[in-house]
């Protein structure tokens, strides 16, 4: 490929090749504080390319490729090349990760123990993780929590935090503007802006943590909390995992261990401040 970028995020090394310079330049700027893949050999290859030669220049469209692909992912305009790179990197993890049980969840850590927050898109996973990260918690990741089947520990995957729509302003008030990427307006998921995790999140990304609290947040409701039975937790976590089936018995064992050992709560919240207070209160009550 013409332009190349390599990076390691937590335990996963990536190689991104692109037909265009622009997405690579943005990745270089935003991932400047990250290390290179271990031994120079990335775990996953990502390709951003023009499906037809003229699409490199004429209304350039970025097609996502790599070791693992979905058959009919729609191309993105070049102005959203950074989003294309992030989506393709996430896709490698979602479809190709076999070392860890992958939960679609954000995670923050304090004193070696982690809070995992999972839920549907729009539940506020990324927003809460970013805000907690600005208040002394260590951000472990806003998209995937990696559970090691051998130890039950959660490993960090602190990629760029992907903030959408109203969350951009909410988090923008809490962290320095210098840590933000460009505003990507009008993407298939609405407006998106990426946030660089703070230096400690990157410096300590190889430190795993003990899962201590599992939350199912839901934005847009009056403050409420609810206990969940183990079967509901199990089903919701299997839905939140992209590689549970592929991991076979290891996946089942890791999943049941989380359900058995980690206290869980569903929390509803009307605004970010209310959510953070609930998280802190539940944490202190552990």
């Amino acid at each position: 490929m013409r332009h190349i970028f390599q990076v390691r995020i937590g335990p996963a090394g990536f190689r991104v090749g692109s037909d265009w310079r622009a997405p690579i330049a943005e990745l270089e700027r935003l991932y400047a504080g990250y290390p290179a893949p271990e031994n120079g050999v990335p775990d996953f290859t990502v390709r951003l390319f023009a499906a037809r030669p003229w699409r490199r220049w004429l209304r350039p469209a970025v097609t996502l490729g790599g070791d693992f692909v979905l058959p009919d992912a729609a191309p993105l305009p070049l102005s959203q090349g950074l989003l294309a790179a992030e989506m393709a990197m996430n896709l490698q993890m979602a479809l190709g990760q076999r070392r860890y049980l992958l939960l679609h969840a954000s995670a923050v850590e304090r004193e070696g123990r982690a809070v995992l927050m999972t839920g549907l898109s729009g539940a506020g996973k990324s927003t809460l993780a970013a805000l907690l990260g600005a208040r002394g918690w260590r951000l472990m990741g806003d998209e995937f929590a990696l559970i090691d089947p051998a130890t039950g520990m959660v490993h960090a995957f602190p990629r760029l935090v992907s903030l959408k729509n109203a969350a951009i302003g909410v988090v923008g008030d809490a962290v320095p503007q210098a840590r933000f990427g460009p505003l990507l307006a009008g993407t298939p998921k609405g407006d998106i802006r990426h946030l660089v995790p703070d230096p400690q999140a990157v410096a300590r990304m190889d430190e795993p943590a003990q899962p201590a609290l599992l939350l199912f947040p839901r934005f847009g409701f009056a403050i409420a909390q609810r206990d969940l039975g183990p079967s509901e937790i199990f089903v919701r976590l299997t839905q939140a995992s992209t590689n549970y089936v592929a991991l076979g018995e290891r996946g089942f064992d890791a999943m049941t261990r989380v359900v058995r050992d980690v206290p869980a709560r569903a929390i509803d919240y009307p605004n970010a401040e209310a959510a953070i207070q609930q998280v802190e209160a539940l944490w202190n009550a552990l």
């Binding site: 090394g13 893949p37 271990e38 031994n39 120079g40 050999v41 775990d43 076999r98 070392r99």
Partner: peptide, 12 residues
Amino acid sequence: MPPAVARILEDA
């Protein structure tokens, strides 16, 4: 082989 390669192949 380098450790990173060994891990990738172990996963495979």
